[in-house]
Amino acid sequence: MSSASAQVSTVRWLKRAAFAVLVVAVIYGLGALLESTAIEYVQRIVLLAGINVILAVGLNLINGTTGQFSIGHAGFMAVGAYAAAFFGTKLHPWLIGLLGAGACADALTFNLALCIGALFAGAAGLVVGIPTLRLRGDYLAVVTLGFGEIIRIVFNNARALGAATGYSGDDPAGLPAYTNFFWVYLWATLLVTGLAHLTFSQTGRSLTAIREDEIAAEAMAIPTTRLKVLAFTVSAATAGVAGGLFAHMQSGIRPEDFKFEKSIDMVVMIIVGGLGSISGAVVGGIFVAVTLEVMRDLSQYRLVLYALLLIIIMLVRPQGLFGARELPSVLRRLRGPRTKESS
């Protein structure tokens, strides 16, 4: 009996491993295709879109699923970016000593740096989340906004990290450009899958319960404070990964990359996509990256048009593109329209 179930479990894991290999291969292939055909400008937009997807899906966990409105996530992205850049710089010589110079040491450095970025951002989220998540609604939004700014101003004055001129590592050429299609989309796939699994589990249901009615959730023995802090921490850590990827896209990072506007961009992504929908967050992230780039030629009119576009979306579809739905349920609706109503 137990050997039979062990066999089933082995088959299950083998299937999963095969699927994982397939996904990695597909991402690798797409990356190679993109790098050989598209110009650098387009490649950059695609990378930014991927990073936005990570940011949006992470923020959606706290703002959408749990209903606790944070508008200071640029701060956590900054923590992740600085931590990843700093530790990446320090780790690299050591890993070269261990593995020899080459792609292997680079990849390991990069991924370790991203994990460290996530860890630091998550820790910052925990520290900020414990006192602030007692607040609700507008108050929470104001306080998270304040914390986001505090984090940025700390970096603006941290001499060891370059203060206002920013941090670009020990190499005069700046931070290494590790970030490419493969790593961005591999991390995006992992994080979106992980967060989707989390959302569609008992924990995710409990988070939604907190959003829907905190008093009732409490009466159902759900540890609301702990879960809110958990969601906030996971969300901050996700932003940290995005920060690390962002840092290694350019030669250096500056505090002004993580201003209040960046937080607002993130909020826009999830609202355009539909609060509480992971599919929506993915689409919203891509949408913001592409729109902001396409309109770059309009220089100072860009933000006016951007705002207008948002107003139009809010008027036409206030619940966002997906509402709270996910892609599978939307597809089902499109395929068999109005079958439910007749029953």
């Binding site: 008992q202 249901r205 409990s206 939604t208 319960a209 829907e212 009615d213 008093i215 009732a216 959730a217 009466a219 159902m220 023995a221 759900i222 540890p223 709270a324």
Partner: peptide, 21 residues
């Protein structure tokens, strides 16, 4: 009434099993 209105009927009940998970 304080139900979790956007969750399904089944999910509303399942949520209350949180502390036993």
């Amino acid at each position: 009434i304080r139900l979790f209105r956007s969750l399904t009927v089944e999910e509303n009940v399942m949520v209350a099993g949180h502390h036993m998970q």
